[in-house]
């Protein structure tokens, strides 16, 4: 029996880009809400999004009164000469009452572990730690209590990993998918000079342009690149290069990955058996309508599963990027 199998149900860790979304998530049944400050210290540094210090303190109080927790993401990589911004984010998160810090950078993990030894430290997916040696290193060196696993592992691999590491694991169960190189992707940086790793934003909106054609088509452009052209009848995706459609070898198609969202509802029994401690929903950049719908669907699914009832698996298609859902690497068939 693995260390997590004693848990009845895993924590449901839900996204919030605004205080309003946090309240919605808590009221919809989130055990934990994760969010970040309104600057480049977190990987969803979008205009109009995120929390001021005062909002974070109020949000944490709101969550705690309702028995929910707040994890604060400080999960970009500090830039040379600007490390104070990231350290202050760590200090302020603790001051606001955060129940855990989610970090990716080793230097920041070291600072947090030394400066705030009583605050739980979680390793962000951006650290891309996906093997026992890497995870053990973070646990032993920085007292990391939980690692958010990159979306590259099958359920079998997650089960095996859980038996070998001394900390909890958290896995994504719904939302946007990266091109399987989290924390190491340079596509956005190549096209725009900005990346989620350093600036907290993939394909920054300031570099994105949409052009509507007279025939109902739509071009999406990132920097100087046209990355997709959607016919009038087609659903669209995010304006990221990894979801772009390109001419290659005489064919036109999605050479990295198709626009689609991860949905692990159908994999829930297997993931529960794998020993993970928490289910994470992606989407701090999404609206509160998304937050409410996804949190409710997963809360109900966990409840139905616990009662031995069938889990409804097609509830969230309307929220999917490109109108498509995938089980991603959890049901990996390509290796």
């Amino acid at each position: 029996m693995t260390k997590q199998q004693g848990r009845k149900t895993p924590e449901l860790v839900c996204p919030a880009g605004t205080p309003s979304a946090l309240r919605v998530a808590v009221d919809a049944g989130a055990d934990v809400v994760y969010c970040g400050f309104r600057d480049e210290t977190n990987a969803r540094n979008f205009p109009g999004l995120n929390f001021s210090r005062a909002e974070m303190a109020e949000a944490t109080e709101y969550a705690h009164k309702r028995k929910a927790q707040v994890y604060v993401t400080v999960n970009t990589f500090p830039q040379a000469g600007k490390t104070d911004l990231w350290r202050k984010a760590v200090d302020d998160a603790v001051g606001c009452g955060a129940d855990a810090l989610i970090v990716a950078d080793m230097g920041l993990a070291s600072y947090a572990a030394k400066t705030h030894p009583d605050t739980r430290l979680h390793l962000s997916v951006q650290a891309s730690a996906s093997n026992p040696d890497a995870i053990k290193y973070y646990c032993e060196t920085f007292n990391v209590k939980r690692v958010v696993l990159p979306r590259v592992l099958s359920v079998t691999e997650i089960t095996a990993l859980n038996d070998e590491i001394p900390c909890e694991t958290e896995v994504f169960v719904f939302g946007g998918l990266c091109v399987m190189a989290e924390g190491r992707c340079l596509l956005s940086s190549y096209a725009t000079g900005k990346s989620p790793n350093m600036n907290g934003v993939c394909s920054p909106a300031g570099d994105v342009r949409y052009e509507q054609g007279k025939d109902g088509s739509m071009d999406s452009k990132l920097g100087v690149f046209t990355i997709n052209r959607f016919a009038e009848s087609e659903t669209t995706g995010y304006p990221t290069i990894c979801k772009g459609r390109f001419k290659c070898g005489g064919n036109t198609g999605y050479i990295f990955e198709e626009p689609s969202s991860l949905d692990a509802l159908s994999m829930m029994p297997d993931l529960l058996q794998s020993g993970v401690a928490a289910f994470k929903i992606e989407g701090r950049q999404r609206g509160r309508a998304y937050t409410e719908a996804v949190v409710k669907a997963f809360r109900k699914a966990l409840s139905d599963y616990a009662r031995g009832w069938p889990v409804k698996t097609d509830a969230l298609i309307a929220l999917a990027e490109g109108g498509q859902l995938t089980e991603g690497a959890y049901k990996k068939t390509w290796r």
Binding site: S20, M218, F230, E232, E234, T235, T236, G237, Y238, P259, Q285, R286, G287, R288, A289, Y290, A293, A318, L319, A320, E321, G322, G323
Partner: peptide, 12 residues
């Protein structure tokens, strides 16, 4: 806030 902007964008 009754509709998610990204979903409404995806669906055109």
């Amino acid at each position: 806030g009754g509709g998610d902007g990204d979903s409404l964008f995806f669906s055109r």
